[in-house]
Amino acid sequence: MDTFNTIILVFDSTVRLSVPLLLACLAGLYSERSGVFDIGLEGKMLAGAFAGAAAASVYGSAWIGLGAAVLISIALSLVHGFASITHRGNQIVSGVAINFIAAGSTIILGQAWFKQGGRTPALASDGSRFESITLPFADALSDVPIIGQIYSELLSGHSILVYVAFLAVPLTWWILFRTRFGLRLRAVGENPGAVDTAGISVVWLRYRAVIFCGFLCGLAGAYLSVAQNAGFVKDMTAGKGFIALAALIFAKWRPINAMYACLLFGFLDALAIRFSGIKIPGLFEIPPQFMQALPYILTVILLAGFIGKAIPPKAGGQPYVKER
C-alpha cells in the first residue's frame, strides 16, 4: 500500500506541476497555429505571475489578481502582435525582447512597490489565494481502497485553475477543429494568402490568436503565484515557458497531444523532486540535473526526427505581406 501511496503522491504533484506548462502550451498553440511564433511565453507568464500576486495582495482578492495577470499578459501579447503582425518585425526577436522586459520589470517594480527583494507579500488564505476545491463525496470516499484514494487525492483537492486548464484542452480542440474560427485560424497559419483571398482579414485573425495566447499565459502566471504558491518570487517561471514551447513541438501543435506532453514533462519534474539524491541500489545514481535536463533532451531528440517528425505550421514565423 505504501508504494501505491507514493505513486498517487507523485501523480498528484505531476498534475500540479503540469498545469502551468499546459496553459502556456495551449497559449502557444493558438499563436503558432495562426502563424505567429511566440518564444515570449516565458515572459508573459512571468509578468502575469507578478501582476497576479501584486494585485491579489493589494486588493485581497484572488479573482482581481487573476484579472490583472490576464490583462498584463494580453498587453504584452499585443506588443508582440504590434511588432510582428503590424510592423512585420522578426517574431523571434520580438519574443526575446518581451522575455527580457518582463524579467527586468517584474524585479524592478516588485522591489520598488513591496521592498522585499523582488518578492510580493505572502498571500494569506482569506480569499486572496485560490484555495483547493474538494470535489463532492471526496471525504466520504477516501476510505475506499484504490478508487477512493484516486478520487480524493488525485482528482479532488486542486485549485479551480487546475480544472480550468484541463477543461481548456477539449475546448481548444473543439475551437480549433470544429468551429469556423478555428478553421480560419489554422488556415492563416498554413496559407495566409488563401485566407486573404477569401476576404478574411489575416491581421485581425492573427491578433485574435495572440490575444487568446495572452489570456492563457495570464492564467498560467496567476496559477503559479496565486494558486500553486502564495506570492511572487523573482524569476519564478524558471524556464517553464520554454518547456511549454518544447511540449508544443513535442505535441506537434495538437491540443490533446499537448496535454500528454505537459503531463510527461510534469511527471519528469515530479520524479526529479521526489527522488533527487536517492541512489538506485546496485546501479549508478541518476543525478538530479539529468532529470531536470530531460525535457530539453527529449525535445532535441524529437527535433532530430527520431520520434516522428514535428512539422510546424507552414507560414509560421513569416509576416504576411498583402500586396507585392
Partner: peptide, 22 residues
C-alpha cells in the same frame, strides 16, 4: 529602488525597438 536588473529592461527595449520594430 533601481537595481542592476534595470539593464535587463533596457536590453529588452533595445531588442524590441532596434530589432523587432526596426
Amino acid at each position: 529602488a533601481i537595481t542592476r536588473d534595470m539593464i535587463v529592461i533596457i536590453q529588452g527595449l533595445v531588442i524590441l525597438f532596434a530589432g523587432a520594430l526596426e
